[in-house]
Design a protein around this nucleic acid. Structure first.
Lengths: 336, 336
DNA sequence: TGATTTTACGAAAACGTTTTCTTTTATTTT
DNA sequence: AAAATAAAAGAAAACGTTTTCGTAAAATCA
């Protein structure tokens, strides 16, 4: 079939082992033999069989990225950063989408126990409450780094952003813009990012002597139609909020759609700020004030950390917790 | 280390081959032995070594997706569709980004000759003129499907959209909105999609007796700053176009930024229509008229076709050319 | 009962590498 | 010139599966 070491050896009148060593530039092989071998390998377009190699060396030169979704600016940018580092290291990248479904996350993790990859980058899905599949994976000893959506009750390396501070600042920004009744759109009951962003929201309110009203904390679902209905219901009431803090991009987009629909003026009647990596944030009508996470950097840092672990360059059993900063960008949607 | 067939066999007092057969549900193994084996496999959390398996069976259960970029709504959605089909088939997905660089495309393809994957899904990068790396890959006999950006001079299965018709319709739409001087923003000299979309543009102009002025066909680069400069220059002239047809999303976004910058009113002074998969198209200021490709469907169809080829379900040496339809969605940016 | 088939399992080769250990040949040392 | 060493290459085992083939024992048949 395709050319392998055996064929190459026959063609060159050498043994398989010598050819292998020549290609790996071993000191045991003379310079001229190496040259001959390399030339023949080029001529016959030899490509080593990756499975034979991986089987023998117990290295896959591959990492896995497990994320909730890909049609999402944050994750697309993060993957971009991950790919950049991986490509630089000569590694392959397997991507798995959980579609925010715990079952998918579990079965994916289960598959990855088989040694298919040398390391795993993971961002939890919104309904992951039980993490025993994660501890199980962790216990196999495979390098594992969580990014952005990380488990709260597990000792593991993570790359996140300053979610609490960002939630605080976003809320404070709305308060300073004159909002008194600030709603918070939350993605999940389980995610650390949601918890922290909401804690920032709560603390900012308290610090400014605004009482938190639980009816303005919306636990959104994974279904867009449901979210639209919930937001519409809230905004259609007489007693409606005058500010919205969306903890994730898509909830801000839903809010915009609702406001367009029910003709609520942003920012005159409702001010909005949201976590978002939209490239079109400043082109929206009105332009959207955002907390923007350094998504590409997060991917880059996560991958770099993972490779440090794979290459055992991380000292002892120290556990890295990298925290990057998000930036608040004021635009029209939250203007006073 | 991790539990393998050998350990399982020892634990069960069986031979390795029997255990293997039991797990693969062979008729040669009795029902009760199968049960015993499965229970022990579960108990010891046995996961077959994928490399040993792939080596032996000459199957990787993996496909490769090679695309120009991921932080791009079209490709993100396409990947989503691909992943859905792959997951359903129990296949793994390796993703490679070329970043619109021919060199990367070449080296990625080179790597894929080694048998790492059972099939390849590919969308060309903008500067791919020479396609001998592609014919070379094709000649290895590995199933290969191109989507959206396909080579024009190669006999191969493709999944595309009705680019010519869409280009024609988009241009005609601008003409009907009253435009006389319509510019076309092109991505590349080499891509089939650009050729076809531009041919539609040219034919629509001709059909409506508008003479094509070459100064209004802009060959954009891969550098955003350069594009902004080119577009600004064109729109700042006294003799500027009154309509713009952007062949790709990011050029429309650049156009919006330029108009915001130089205070040109869309659609009063300049009407805009663009190929785009922006979820926020209707939230932009003004909302953007788009030709929207069924990106998710394209991914789905491409993957399905690829799997038909992998499973040899495609008849003889027929070459599938699947063409899906894009839809023109009129919004404010091209209002009369 | 003896011959034949069926059932259930085991032995061993194969996939294509990598790597350890040997062996051969050439070179240097005494 | 004989012995020791160095250089270059080969033999073979190993990685963990899958699969072909062989072979007991049990079941069926004549």
């Amino acid at each position: 079939m395709s050319t392998n070491l055996k064929l190459l050896a026959k063609e060159l009148g050498l043994s398989i082992s010598s050819v292998s060593k020549a290609l790996r530039d071993s000191y045991e092989i003379s310079a001229e033999t190496k040259k001959r071998v390399r030339e023949m390998a080029d001529k016959l377009n030899y490509q080593p069989n990756p499975f034979a190699s991986s089987l023998r060396r117990k290295k896959s030169i591959t990492i896995a990225v497990v994320i909730p979704e890909i049609a999402n600016n944050f994750f697309a940018l993060a993957i971009d950063g991950i790919q950049m580092v991986a490509q630089q290291k000569g590694y392959h990248v397997l991507t798995y989408l959980t579609h925010e479904d715990h079952k998918n996350e579990e079965s994916t993790i289960q598959h990855l126990q088989g040694g298919r990859v040398d390391g795993v980058l993971l961002s939890l899905c919104r309904d992951t409450a039980d993490i025993k599949h994660l501890t199980s994976l962790h216990e196999t000893g495979i390098p594992l780094v969580f990014f952005d959506r990380v488990p709260e009750t597990m000792e593991c390396p993570t790359v996140t952003t300053d979610d609490y501070e960002s939630g605080y600042k976003a809320t404070e920004h709305l308060i300073k813009a004159g909002c008194k009744k600030i709603a918070c759109l939350s993605l999940s009951n389980y995610l650390s990012i949601t918890h922290k962003r909401m804690k920032g929201y709560e603390d900012a309110l308290q610090h400014h002597n605004i009482k938190l009203d639980p009816k303005w904390v919306l636990q959104c679902s994974n279904d867009n139609a449901t979210n639209l209905a919930m937001i519409t219901k809230m905004l259609n009431k007489k007693d409606r909020p005058d500010g919205i803090f969306a903890t994730v991009e898509k909830l801000a987009i839903s809010t915009y759609y609702v406001c367009q629909d029910i003709k609520l003026k942003i920012p005159q009647q409702l001010k909005v700020i949201s976590f978002s990596n939209l490239r079109t944030a400043s082109l929206l009508n009105p332009s959207l004030s955002t907390i923007t996470q350094p998504a590409f950097e997060i991917g880059k840092e996560s991958a770099s950390l993972l490779f440090r672990m794979i290459e055992k360059k991380t000292f002892g059993n120290r556990i890295d917790k990298i925290v990057l900063k998000s930036s608040l960008i004021e635009r029209e949607s939250s203007k006073k």
